[in-house]
Nucleic acid binder design. Structure first.
Length: 296
DNA sequence: TTCCAGGGGTAGA
DNA sequence: TCTACCCATGGA
């Protein structure tokens, strides 16, 4: 058992961050609502799979408890800290968003105490696969498909081999598409996820290009839509996970929210609906998402 | 049983 | 750029 910790700034709300959307209950993440913590099995650079339990017991600090069969290498500890920082977005600055929240008031006023961060996966590959698994399916189906992927292709945690890490692209790519389809029931998404895995595994697709913060959003969007299975909704969702909030994913969740809370008619005009959040500038998606959460 | 989900690819205009 | 049409799967 190893204990690691990460310092946080005062404007960081751990419970809000991990429960900001459904990611915390998608395997390998396991949410503990009693303690407002989550755990996940993570494959480490040293080769072994460890269980990380992430919590925030004291203010200004995130605690990571690591259970591993073998002693952690220094590179493992560094890797874990980097990945948890990434998941919790500890390096993102929300100052300007909070200024706008205070100015707007209403449901947004409460966000300025450190909310607004949306949990993400340690890797862009995991986020891409999970976003594809949210398309044209109910949430229960998303959880089922991700569970099947982890069960079939994840690296097991030795002390409890039924617990597994998220699959590496190489693990999926090592099977043919037909074999992949035989192990997981992803419907027509199987071909998209298999192709993505193959391209990442053989190096023909470099996902790190998506994280280039100096590139314009339009360029990142174009690269995202070059991945089969990523359309407008999925690309915009990925842009949010990449820390770009200037566009709103217009899926059924958005449409339902606008009908219920902004008196939009049955087949409302999408441009008019999006115009509701226009004055939020580069924070449109967060303004919408957290208003939607508060109105539930 | 039918419908459709936190849509997307493709062909044809 | 816009519009039909099709796409696998399983829960409601």
């Amino acid at each position: 058992m190893t204990h690691l910790s990460l310092p946080t700034t005062p404007d960081f709300d751990f419970p809000s961050t991990i429960t900001s959307h459904g990611w915390v209950v998608l395997l390998p993440n396991v949410y503990d609502k009693e303690t407002y913590s989550f755990s996940r099995i993570e494959a480490l650079p040293g080769g072994q799979a460890a269980r990380l339990t992430v919590s925030s017991i004291t203010q200004n600090q995130v605690k990571i408890t690591v259970e591993s069969p073998d002693e952690l290498l220094p590179s493992d500890k560094k890797h874990i800290k980097q990945k948890v920082r990434h998941m919790l977005r500890l390096d993102e600055d929300y100052t300007d968003f909070y200024v706008q929240c205070q100015a707007k008031g209403a449901v947004w006023a409460g966000l300025a105490c450190g909310q607004g961060r949306m949990l993400r996966s340690p890797s862009l590959f995991e986020d891409l696969v999970k976003v594809i698994c949210t398309t044209n399916i109910q949430w229960g189906g998303t959880k089922r498909m991700v569970r099947e992927l982890v069960d079939a292709y994840g690296t097991p945690f030795t002390p409890q081999p039924e617990l597994k890490a998220f699959p590496a692209p190489q693990a999926i790519a090592s099977d043919s598409l037909d074999a992949f389809k035989g192990k997981v029931n992803l419907g027509y998404r199987a071909a998209y996820i298999h192709e993505l895995s193959v391209r990442v595994a053989d190096g023909s697709l470099d996902l790190s290009e998506l994280a280039d913060d100096t590139a314009p959003t339009a360029e990142i969007r174009k690269k995202l839509k070059g991945i089969k299975g990523i359309g407008d909704y999925a690309a915009t969702s990925m842009l949010m996970l990449l820390g770009r909030y200037d566009e709103i994913p217009t899926d059924t969740v958005f449409r339902d929210h606008m009908r219920k809370n902004h008196a939009a008619e049955g087949d409302f005009d999408l441009k008019q609906a999006l115009a509701v959040y226009e004055d939020w500038g580069c924070w449109k998606a967060l303004a919408y998402w957290f208003e939607m959460l508060e109105s539930e």
